[in-house]
Amino acid sequence: MHSVFLLTGSNLGDRATQLSACIAALQNRAGTVTASSQVYETEAWGKEGLPPHLNQALHLSTTLSPLELLTVIHDIEHGLGRVRQEKWGVRAMDIDIIYYDDMVLNLPALTIPHPLMQERRFVLQPLTEIAAAYLHPVFRKTTAELLSSCADPLAVMPGNAGER
């Protein structure tokens, strides 16, 4: 079994329902979700003026290879209404592979660890909840250390799982 950390997010539609549906789809198609952070409401990163996201970090145990998992993730995103039109635009569902075992992978379709995770508080804060001591295989820093040195000023606040 492979140990994978994912970040899920939604800023379109019923965000909380989307996150729950995502977990169910991952359990059904990709493996076993063994841990999850609380849900966080986060400001949009990379583009101003977008609605806030609900984000959640997940730990997944899977037998899928990284590219097989990516294919399943894209299918799940599509099934939950994701349309890829604009980089950093609104999205019904976004699922990012953050870590896959201690693998370092640089392919045109997939980079592991996620190449911008260390710059994004909305990734690091929920991930620290379930993987604080996990060592980044390139930077050789724990997730908690990456969070403590993250300069991202955007707000990441515990959110309730329901819509406001």
Rank of each mutant, 00 (worst) to 15 (best):
P153C: 06
M117F: 06
Q118G: 00
H78E: 11
W45N: 07
A109R: 08
T128E: 14
A30L: 08
D14Y: 09
Q38H: 12
T128F: 00
K141P: 02
M157F: 01
P137I: 14
S10T: 14
R82C: 03
E48W: 12
L107Q: 11
L135W: 04
H74G: 02
A92V: 05
G89P: 07
V72N: 09
L6C: 09
Q27V: 09
F139Q: 11
Q38T: 12
L58S: 05
P158C: 07
V156D: 10
A92L: 03
T17L: 13
K141A: 05
E119D: 13
A92S: 15
A132N: 02
Q18L: 12
A133G: 12
A16M: 08
D94T: 03
A25V: 00
S148I: 09
V138H: 02
I76R: 08
Q27D: 12
A155L: 12
P113F: 08
K47C: 05
I97F: 00
M1C: 08
V156Y: 06
S148L: 10
R120E: 11
N28Q: 15
T34L: 06
C150N: 03
A25K: 06
G81S: 01
I23Q: 09
S37I: 09
M1Y: 02
P113K: 02
V90N: 11
S20D: 15
H53D: 10
S20N: 15
H53C: 04
V123Y: 07
R29A: 15
R164E: 15
G9P: 00
S148Q: 14
A24S: 10
P108S: 08
L54C: 06
G9F: 14
Q18V: 12
P66S: 03
Q125K: 13
N11M: 12
T142G: 02
L70W: 05
T128G: 01
L107D: 09
D75M: 07
I97T: 06
T111M: 09
T128V: 08
R140T: 06
L50F: 02
L19E: 12
V156F: 05
L70F: 03
V72Q: 13
A25T: 00
A132S: 15
T128P: 01
D14N: 15
R84Y: 08
P51V: 14
G13S: 10
A161M: 11
Q85V: 15
G13V: 10
C22S: 10
R15T: 04
N28M: 14
E119L: 09
A155G: 04
I76G: 06
Q85T: 15
T62L: 11
G31Q: 09
R140I: 01
Y100K: 01
L12K: 13
Q118C: 02
A16G: 15
I23A: 07
N11P: 06
T71K: 10
E68M: 01
A57P: 04
Q27Y: 02
V90F: 01
R121N: 12
L6H: 01
T32K: 13
P158D: 04
V104L: 06
L124S: 04
F122V: 07
G49T: 02
L7M: 14
M93I: 05
A144T: 05
M93K: 06
T42M: 02
E43G: 00
